[in-house]
Structure formats: structure tokens, C-alpha cells
Simulated assay, not measured.
Amino acid sequence: MKRANVETTHADAATIAAALRPDNTPSMSTRVDGDVVRTQIERETTGGLQSSVDDYVVNLTVAETVARTTREHRSNHE
């Protein structure tokens, strides 16, 4: 089994993790520790692991962009 651990820090880690979880496959687990999102991905092959990590990073980028845009929008309207 091949394994990757991805750890990222966010201003609202719980929101980012919640946005990521619906796209997680059964071979992925995501948890939050303070401001850190920790995701473990396991796959049978290196190619499968790479594909899953690539997809995860794209989803993570979208989630972070949406969260940041929402924070900025809120601060501009307060």
C-alpha cells in the first residue's frame, strides 16, 4: 500500500476540511487539528496515489480560494 500525508494550515481549517470531505474517496481520511487540515491518502499503486493527491490538491485549492473570497467579502461589508 502506498501512502501520502498532506498537512496544510488555514485560517478556518474546519471549513476547509468540511469542503474537502464530500470529494474524499474511501482511501482518504481528513481530520482537523487546530488550524491544520491533515489528510491521509492510501492507494495500491504509486500512479493511483499520484492521481488521488493531484485531485486532492485541486480540491484543496478551490476550497481555500472560496474560503478566502468569503472572508474578504465579509470584511468588506462589515
Score class of each variant (00 low, 15 high):
41 I>D: 01
68 R>T: 06
51 S>P: 07
37 V>F: 01
24 N>V: 09
19 A>N: 06
20 L>C: 06
36 V>Y: 03
41 I>Y: 01
70 T>C: 08
64 E>V: 13
24 N>E: 15
55 D>L: 12
44 E>M: 04
20 L>H: 03
22 P>L: 10
37 V>N: 00
5 N>W: 12
23 D>V: 12
75 S>G: 12
8 T>L: 00
24 N>R: 06
55 D>Y: 09
48 G>K: 05
54 D>A: 15
33 D>H: 13
29 S>K: 15
35 D>Y: 06
76 N>T: 15
65 T>W: 08
45 T>M: 00
32 V>N: 02
37 V>A: 00
2 K>P: 03
40 Q>I: 14
37 V>I: 03
15 T>G: 04
48 G>P: 03
46 T>L: 14
39 T>I: 02
13 A>T: 05
55 D>P: 03
56 Y>L: 10
41 I>V: 07
47 G>T: 04
52 S>H: 01
64 E>C: 11
35 D>R: 09
66 V>H: 09
62 V>C: 05
60 L>G: 04
7 E>H: 11
32 V>K: 00
56 Y>W: 10
54 D>W: 08
71 R>G: 04
67 A>K: 02
27 S>P: 04
60 L>W: 01
58 V>H: 10
28 M>G: 07
34 G>A: 07
17 A>M: 06
2 K>Y: 10
14 A>L: 04
30 T>F: 07
21 R>T: 06
42 E>F: 09
26 P>Y: 14
1 M>R: 05
1 M>N: 09
41 I>T: 01
12 D>N: 13
33 D>T: 13
46 T>R: 13
21 R>S: 04
6 V>T: 08
41 I>Q: 01
66 V>I: 11
67 A>Y: 00
